[in-house]
């Protein structure tokens, strides 16, 4: 009975994804004939049809996600160091100010944000990367809590040995905060990779699109061509899915940390 419930939920969870994955290797007419049937042959025509576009979109997504992630990690680590190890007036107030970003949904800012980047005269992928750089609240929160947990004696000892602030950050604190860095990396990666609203508004040219918007543009451009559409979905999903299966333990730990510390 217990297992029946668990299996039923598992099936409900996994089937839509599985269906999308196996439909991507069925020719469109086979999908239309029987939406359910698993593929009888390996057919890569759908992937051929979308490969050219998808390669560009995947390249854009990798570029945007990679650079944004690097920016967020660097600025969060530096800011978290200031909040955790330096003493200055208004520290806690500024910290609370930096956390406002946690309470703001991105789609509420996108109207003014779009007008603002036009005023600045930037657009496309550059505007997107700069904008993601602003979403560092989560990173600062997590890294600070890791830095705060490092025993004072360790930092004092390093200081006695003549270590500079930079050395203390890079040689002492960051290695000890590795699980925190992993948490920030995983959640930022997923968020930026899957983000929808910023690229929807900021990216105007087809060759700039990221994967999620590419999928939608494909739909409106071609009507619903089932096979190729399934191939775009499969490519878009396999990358985060593999990342999840590899980093599953870190991901689970990150959720638990997020819930306790949030």
């Amino acid at each position: 009975m217990t297992y029946a419930v668990l299996a039923l939920v598992a099936l409900t969870t996994i089937f839509p994804v599985l269906w999308m994955l196996y439909s991507s290797i069925k020719p469109t007419q086979d999908i239309l004939r029987d939406v359910f049937a698993p593929p009888t042959t390996l057919y890569f025509g759908n992937f051929d049809a979308v490969l050219q576009d998808m390669l560009i979109w995947v390249k854009n997504s990798v570029l945007v996600t990679g650079i944004s992630l690097a920016i967020i990690l660097v600025v969060s680590a530096l800011a978290a160091y200031a909040f955790s190890q330096l003493r200055f007036r208004g520290r806690e107030l500024l910290f609370v100010f930096m956390l406002v970003g946690l309470m703001v949904p991105a789609h509420a800012l996108v109207v003014a944000g779009f007008k603002w980047i036009s005023v600045l005269g930037i657009g496309g992928i550059l505007a997107l990367i700069l904008t993601y750089g602003g979403w560092s609240s989560f990173g600062i929160l997590v890294m600070r809590s890791f830095f705060d947990a490092v025993p004072k004696e360790i930092i004092e000892a390093a200081r006695m040995d003549g270590a500079s602030h930079w050395k203390i950050l890079t040689r002492v604190l960051l290695p000890l905060a590795r699980p925190g860095i992993a948490t920030v990396t995983i959640f930022t990666f997923l968020w930026v990779w899957n983000d929808f609203v910023y690229p929807l508004v900021y990216l105007q040219r087809t060759e700039d699109l990221t994967v999620p918007i590419g999928i939608l543009s494909f739909q409106s451009r071609q009507g619903v061509q089932w096979g190729p559409q399934m191939a775009t979905l499969a490519i878009a999903t396999i990358i985060p899915l593999v990342a999840y299966l590899i980093a599953r333990r870190q991901f689970v730990r990150g959720i638990m940390q997020g819930a306790v510390k949030g």
């Binding site: 003493r87 208004g90 520290r91 602030h165």
Partner: peptide, 27 residues
């Protein structure tokens, strides 16, 4: 909190503040 590290703190906070204020707070 003392003033001692004020200027140094600004250096460490500047990159985060640049992106945060420029692309989140202003919008």
């Amino acid at each position: 909190p003392q003033r001692r590290d004020g200027r140094l703190a600004l250096v460490f906070l500047a990159p985060a503040l640049f992106f945060y204020i420029g692309f989140l707070i202003i919008p």
